[in-house]
Design a binder for these strands. Sequence first.
DNA 1: CAATTAACTTTGATAAGACAAAGTTAATTA
DNA 2: TAATTAACTTTGTCTTATCAAAGTTAATTG
Lengths: 227, 227
Amino acid sequence: MASRTIENYLKQIYLSRPADETQWLTMGKLSAAVGVTPGTATSMVRAISDAHLVEYEPRAGVRLTPAGEQLALHVLRRHRLIELLLVQVLGLDWSEVHDDAEELEHVVSDRLLAKIDEILQHPAFDPHGDPIPTAGGVVRRQDCCTLLDCPLGEPTSIARILDQSAEFLQYVNQCGLLPGAEIRVASRNHQAQTVELMVIKSDENQLVAMSFSVAEKFLVQLNERKK
Amino acid sequence: MASRTIENYLKQIYLSRPADETQWLTMGKLSAAVGVTPGTATSMVRAISDAHLVEYEPRAGVRLTPAGEQLALHVLRRHRLIELLLVQVLGLDWSEVHDDAEELEHVVSDRLLAKIDEILQHPAFDPHGDPIPTAGGVVRRQDCCTLLDCPLGEPTSIARILDQSAEFLQYVNQCGLLPGAEIRVASRNHQAQTVELMVIKSDENQLVAMSFSVAEKFLVQLNERKK
DNA sequence: CAATTAACTTTGATAAGACAAAGTTAATTA
DNA sequence: TAATTAACTTTGTCTTATCAAAGTTAATTG
């Protein structure tokens, strides 16, 4: 079995992988994501490569093998199911569950995870809108775009928050922009680098403004979202 | 903070400590309990002793300091609250929760533990009848005796199972001897080294026989048990 | 195209935690 | 009391994971 350290590296390699699948993840980005010095990342990646979980090309970077990706997705599945459990069953605030899940994801047994999955009725998304890989290691594709490139004026809803830091999620809470929230993007100002959007609530609507860099952290859905 | 290894040593020192508080726990027993070679136990105990969590007397053994005992009780509190959560909320069988709890006890944050405690409504006992130390590190005394030395003929009930192995607990399940079960000890045969007892069920009673060595693993209550 | 620089790798050292095997104590037996 | 033995400690080595600092590559810039 892969150590918790290796599980962490694989997860970060997966999460930080470049959009273009032919590209390598550079060691600089990986070491930053894992939180170790570049030299440490190099030697760990060499070891993980010996176990055929990643391909490593010196001075180019690192890339998951199919086996490594499966392992990464299992870790991610654990992480996201646990987050949902903490929110839905234990009643923790969704802005606070990330750190606990980060630890728990490495110790929860398959048996326990199956039970959690069952209790939550095989959910497809975690509290931040991140897709939960299936037990078979398949990620359902989400048809999403960010608040920067979605159509203006059309009613849509928040699907996913990409920044999981507690502070940011508390801001998201205040704005009422949690996954599922109904919104309409009112305008974009390229000079001011801001987006204005309407949050549609049952009682009253609310206008929210944010910078482009923040708007990028919100994904909105294009098609109907299942479950 | 104490490492997970140290937490484990402290927990085992607590659980294996001799009944007489002036006695030392020998290194042989400790190494067996932790599952390491004697030499490893010696060097770890030296390190833990440097941190003032235990007293160590070469060739005599080891004993918790007040600080070490508090830490041990916190680990035990986590373990037992987690076991109860897994049984009551996640619906796992009580014979299967020990191993998961063994891992989870080292990673659950104080915040999460407080939430678990709240959801379970501040329980006093885990599924095996083991007392859950309070957040302040106090263990409620149980007034118990084993099936070997409790009075004959009197109605009483099972309070606690001392053997937590899955196989044994499955046997306990079959006999219907879980904590809370109403029983009456019918007879003891010192020649055959067996105890016979009546398990009082709503529909019908059942006679169960077991050896002295197994009877010792059951504690029955003397006074009324709270909560 | 030489000099600079950013990114990466290598090297050497360290800490935690473990084992095997050799060495030591102290109790038991003869 | 000498020999034996069980229990414990010491010593040396290993693995995993880390850092700091020195060395290397390759891209950028003047």
